[in-house]
């Protein structure tokens, strides 16, 4: 693990810890309004100060992780289950069904993912879980394509023939040797990219407003929009969510880049 990956893992661990803390805490985002302490700078009572309604920025920052953590994980699950299964089966067995699946994946890949997700939340409701599921489904063809290509090139390798000659069944070769041993980093990489993509989607929509998480429920996106450009405000009110978005996405990408199969010397 290189320095970047360690940094990424540490940041993601902190985000996870913050999420867990926010989930068990009794902090009430709605009750915590107190104009008498609006726009305070950082202090021991309020580590990142308060926003212009007097709400604690640090708590809202932690609480906002609930807006993307669940949907992000849902997106990873929703894209991996069909994506990996379809990619692996089509790559290993080939045939006309594989051809049809690839064609379908190509067609879906031509549609902009952002538009697909917007469409889904317009039709099925402005809910972050639906956003996560839609992002996952929209990403599934990309993942399937990647797994397909990897399996398709690996299945011709001599070691697959040797494994067969060794008495291993197709099932074990496919799911264990090809998929688990040789594709897990690939899938992990895509899952991390997808997670950061879902985070970006959620914060973008919440920032723009209209869709996404709305006040008073905190999201890093709407926190940024709420505090951005406030005169005489607490600068951390905007800087903290902006840095949080930037650091989390950077962490996902750094960690994803370290997940590389070391096949060659």
């Amino acid at each position: 693990m290189n320095a970047g990956a360690r940094f990424g893992a540490a940041v993601l661990a902190m985000v996870l810890a913050g999420w867990a803390l926010a989930s068990i805490s009794s902090y009430d985002v709605i009750a915590d309004v107190d104009p008498s302490r609006a726009s305070l700078g950082p202090s021991l009572d309020h580590w990142l100060g308060t926003d212009h309604l007097g709400r604690d920025v640090a708590w809202r920052l932690l609480k906002a992780s609930q807006a993307f953590m669940g949907p992000g994980l849902l997106a990873c699950t929703v894209s991996s289950l069909p994506g990996v299964a379809a990619g692996a089966l089509a790559g290993f067995f080939g045939g006309p069904i594989a051809y049809a699946l690839r064609y379908l994946a190509t067609v879906i890949a031509t549609l902009p993912r952002f538009v697909l997700v917007l469409l889904a939340i317009t039709i099925y409701g402005d809910n972050m879980w639906i956003l996560g599921a839609a992002a996952g489904l929209a990403y599934a063809p990309t993942l399937a394509e990647a797994v397909y290509n990897r399996i398709d090139s690996l299945k011709r390798d001599e070691f697959v023939l040797a494994a067969r000659a060794h008495g291993l069944g197709s099932w074990r070769i496919l799911w264990y040797h090809l998929l688990w041993i040789n594709c897990r980093y690939l899938v992990g990489r895509h899952a991390l990219y997808l997670f950061s993509y879902t985070l970006l989607l959620e914060t973008t929509l919440s920032y723009i407003g209209g869709f996404g998480v709305k006040e008073p429920t905190p999201s890093w996106g709407n926190m940024l929009a709420f505090e951005f450009g406030q005169r005489d405000g607490n600068p951390w009110g905007a800087w903290a969510p902006a840095l949080a978005i930037w650091l989390t996405i950077l962490a996902c990408n750094l960690l994803a880049n370290s997940l590389v199969e070391k096949r060659r010397a």
Binding site: D157, E158, F159, L161, A162, A163, A165, H177, I181, N182, E261, K262, R263
Partner: peptide
């Protein structure tokens, strides 16, 4: 196999 190294699971 002819290519002994290729016959081993690379990972």
């Amino acid at each position: 196999p002819q290519d002994a190294r290729g016959g081993l699971d690379p990972l």
